[in-house]
Design a protein around this nucleic acid. Structure first.
Length: 540
RNA sequence: GCCCCCGUAGCUCAACGGACAGAGCAACGGACUUCUAAUCCGCAGGUUGCAGGUUCGAUUCCUGCCGGGGGCGCCA
């Protein structure tokens, strides 16, 4: 990190000396994919050439020549290459500085950033209706929302995890009707819920024949199970927000009045409409039906008004399933009609998760009772595997999960690859203890013995964690962390294979340096796995 | 018809607008008297759906097609 800053400021200074204005964001260094291109590289010559009216390659050569004569710390060679890249070759010493930074800060402080500057952000996710168990897709997006919160917290945001509980309205009544029908021993109604859990709830319910209390009873029970399922994945909410608390108070009416005051409401055909077309929506939306009931949108707008204007969140991130895409435009329109900058609302749409089992694709539907419950998957493959699998691909990527493959706990499942690396670290520690080998203080260790490519690769990866984290945060992509952790695991396995830490042929100095490298790696896994919500086992 | 997401190796997926598109799995061939072989190494696998455009440079950005998924209720 520090070496890179030194280089980029040196490049910037040199650009100025050459009469070229550096880019606004400063000189950015990147790590070339091809190791032949050195340790760090910059494209400033290409980027500035046009504005400076210079030939890119010529500018790059001038930079390289000047920087070669007075190289920044750790820099061994500076080269200009082909279209206009400037490449820097460093001595391994820059990586030896990475190790103390990691082990001194430990998992508490290393790669802890302040991108958010304390901005208060609410992340609302899962929010599945309490009318049945969670399905696998809920778990997928749940892991996303929770890990995003972890990432943003580590980047200096103050986050709140919220679950919006749909504990009122038509679907609760339908749930109640289903329970009552089962209790009478009748088939559930056409629009009812068919799942086996309804039968169990019917056995427990001893209230009246009224659908609403029966539905509330069932929904409460189901919500308890949902909480337990999510908790088993390490997902714990700060707040469970009741839809009834919005809709059964005056909040919906107040919100509609505010919209009306803004001139965005119209009575038409006996219903009350939001003129969302004026705000970029494709059509107007009903707020109050002609029978006097408020629509879901009206409640949702009251809810978002509460988020922004009552509770005062600076930013709200809603994680919805892609099947809720249709409500986004009206939500955004409504929020901006309430006077909230719509840039403060981010809606992440989780693409669908489909399952393959025995070669056939299952269509998930709560009403038909035909879906794979998240609980079943967790019971099959465990919470860690469930979380890691769900965080491999981005939220925009529709995924296909082959249950047969995943159940085998085979190499199909990358969680074992990562956890095994961590278990090996713990194992080295145990053996060291057995043999009475004690780590000397870091400042007495000779880190310059770390020159093996495997060792340097580990250090490079540890150095890149803050970048990966920042990237994961700004793009709202926890899956970047998954990639990083898998890379670290690969690097560690290679190191483990080629570089004995405690072997008889290893000098004391090298052994000590490697023990510190192992410790730094442990810190890296601890941070990465914590962000993903995956356990780091001591043994496997 | 309109809106959103996607199309990359046999499969599942990566790749701040960067250099020769990478991993894992599956296939094939190797490596365990050693800190855990749930590992490592090698080999192979590609016209990044198609056609244009912008750019010094496009898997990435823009337009249009083709294909897949999801939406387009006075349901929630």
């Amino acid at each position: 990190m520090r070496a890179r800053l030194l280089i980029s400021s040196a490049v910037e200074a040199e650009l100025r000396r050459l009469g070229v204005e550096p880019p606004a964001g400063g000189v950015r260094l990147e790590r070339p994919a091809n190791p032949d291109h050195g340790d760090w590289s910059t494209n400033v010559a290409l980027a500035c050439a046009k504005a400076a009216r210079r030939a890119p390659m010529e500018l790059a050569s001038q930079l390289a020549t000047a920087l070669s004569s007075t190289p920044p710390a750790h820099v061994r060679a500076v080269e200009a290459l082909r279209p206009g890249f400037v490449n820097f070759r460093l001595s391994p010493s820059w990586l030896w500085e990475v190790l103390p930074a990691v082990v001194a800060d430990r998992e508490e402080s290393y790669a802890r950033l302040d991108l958010g500057r304390g901005e208060r952000v609410q992340i609302e996710f899962v929010s599945a209706n309490p009318t049945g168990p969670l399905h696998v897709g809920n778990g997928w997006w749940g892991a996303y929302g929770d890990s995003l919160a972890r990432v943003m917290e580590r980047c200096g945001y103050e986050t709140t995890r919220e679950y919006y509980v749909n504990d009122t309205g038509g679907q609760i009544r339908r749930l109640g009707e289903s329970v009552l029908a089962r209790r009478r021993g009748e088939p559930v109604p056409e629009e009812g819920y068919q799942g086996a859990y309804v039968r169990e709830l019917a056995l427990e319910y001893d209230g009246t024949e009224d659908a609403t209390p029966a539905g509330r009873f069932a929904a409460e029970r189901i919500l308890e199970n949902i909480k337990a399922t999510l908790a088993s994945l390490g997902i714990v909410y700060d707040s469970w927000y009741s839809q009834a608390s919005i809709e059964e108070t005056g909040k919906v009416g107040e919100t509609i009045s505010l919209l009306a005051a803004a001139g965005l409401v119209e009575e038409r055909e006996g219903a009350t409409w939001l003129l969302s077309t004026k705000l970029g929506d494709t059509r107007d939306r009903v707020l109050v039906k002609s029978n006097g009931d408020a629509t879901y949108l009206a409640g949702d707008l009251a809810y978002h008004r509460d988020k922004f204007l009552v509770r005062g969140f600076d930013r709200v991130i809603d994680v919805f399933g892609a099947d809720h895409h249709g409500q986004v435009a009206s939500l955004v329109a409504g929020v901006s009609a309430l006077g909230v900058d719509p840039g403060r609302l981010e809606v992440k749409l989780g693409q669908m998760v489909s399952l393959v089992e025995g070669g056939t694709t299952g269509k998930m539907s709560k009403r038909s009772g035909n879906f794979v419950a998240l609980d079943e998957l967790i019971a099959d493959i465990g919470p860690d595997a469930t979380r890691l699998l769900s965080l491999i691909s981005g939220i925009d990527q529709a995924t296909t999960l082959d249950l047969d493959l995943v159940r085998r706990q085979s190499m199909e499942n990358p969680v074992y690859y990562v956890q095994y690396a961590h278990a090996r670290i713990a194992s080295i520690g145990r053996v060291a203890t057995e043999r009475g080998v004690v780590r000397v203080p870091l400042d007495q260790a000779d880190l310059s013995t770390l020159v093996h490519p495997r060792e340097l690769e580990l250090l490079r990866l540890l150095d890149s964690l803050p970048d990966a984290l920042a990237d994961a945060c700004t793009t709202r992509s926890p899956s970047r962390i998954t990639s990083w952790v898998r890379d670290l695991a690969g690097a560690f396995h290679g190191f483990y294979h080629d570089c004995s830490v405690l072997g008889p042929d290893i000098s004391d100095d090298l052994s000590q340096a490697r023990m510190w490298l192992v410790e730094a790696s442990r810190v890296g896994f601890a941070i990465g796995l914590e962000l993903l919500g995956v356990n780091a086992p001591e043994a496997m």
